[in-house]
Design a binder for these strands. Structure first.
Length: 221
DNA sequence: AAGGGATACAACCGCTCCTCG
DNA sequence: TCGAGGAGCGGTTGTATCCCT
């Protein structure tokens, strides 16, 4: 049972791509566009899985890729975006033209992680290392005050160009509320709108059935 | 010069999300 | 409304290269 494999594994190459394979892939995409990745390998005469072709094109062959070392500005931007978005590498990559999610993810794990650790900052939480748990307080009484602080903190990053508006969560929470934030660009929108009332998901999207616009975060990503 | 550990990054894997019939 | 299939994402692995002893 289960899903059929994305390709005939027995007849596909794996590992590093050869120059000839690259050339075939580039030529095919130039001629026909990206289209359906699943059928692309056969059409291009490649013994590769569609996923492999997609990855190779997106991360290495695309003509608009920047390549080369990350600048200090890019470093700082990645750190700021990661502190806001977490491991949402594709979203972070969207703010860095010419950089791919895979490239940023690798760069984070090899360089930035170490850089933050050397600064005494936890790369996961972006808090000082060895901060005792007792120092982290969870308060619902001062919630509004705390949200305003967060709002100010984020707005102090004008270089991120994130249009943000944060309001207190809706009071009457019930068990159906999710915890994990989900972001999605709405059609024709200037940014992302997160709904903190019903699902922490996209406001007025599939996951959001409320009309409480006061509990949203708009991220102009 | 050799070899062994560390590092960097390309590529793979498995899962979730999204779309469409 | 539901399920199948394709696309996309994030975590992990494999391997080439670098560096130190």
């Amino acid at each position: 049972m289960g899903r059929s494999p994305c390709c005939e594994k027995a007849h596909t190459n794996k590992g590093a791509w050869t120059k000839e394979e690259d050339e075939r892939l580039i030529a095919h995409i130039k001629a026909h566009g990206e289209g359906c990745w699943r059928s692309l390998p056969k059409a291009a005469g490649l013994l590769r899985c569609g996923k492999s072709c997609r990855l190779r094109w997106i991360n290495y062959l695309r003509p608009d890729l920047k390549r080369g070392n990350f600048t200090e500005e890019e470093d700082e931007l990645i750190i700021k975006l990661h502190s806001l978005l977490g491991n949402k590498w594709s979203l972070i990559a969207g703010r860095l033209p010419g950089r791919t999610d895979n490239e940023i993810k690798n760069y984070w794990n090899t360089h930035i992680r170490r850089k933050l650790l050397s600064r005494g900052i936890d790369p996961t939480t972006h808090r000082p290392l060895h901060q005792p748990l007792s120092d982290i307080t969870i308060s619902f009484v001062k919630q509004e005050e705390r949200i305003n602080e967060e709002k100010e903190k984020i707005l102090r990053c004008p270089d991120l160009n994130l249009e943000l508006c944060i309001s207190p969560p809706f009071q009457e929470m019930n068990n159906s509320h999710h915890v994990e934030p989900v972001m999605k660009r709405e059609e024709g929108d200037q940014g992302f709108t997160l709904c903190f009332t019903c699902s922490l998901g996209p406001h007025k999207s599939q996951g959001c059935k409320c009309n409480n616009s006061s509990s949203t975060v708009v991220l102009g990503l």
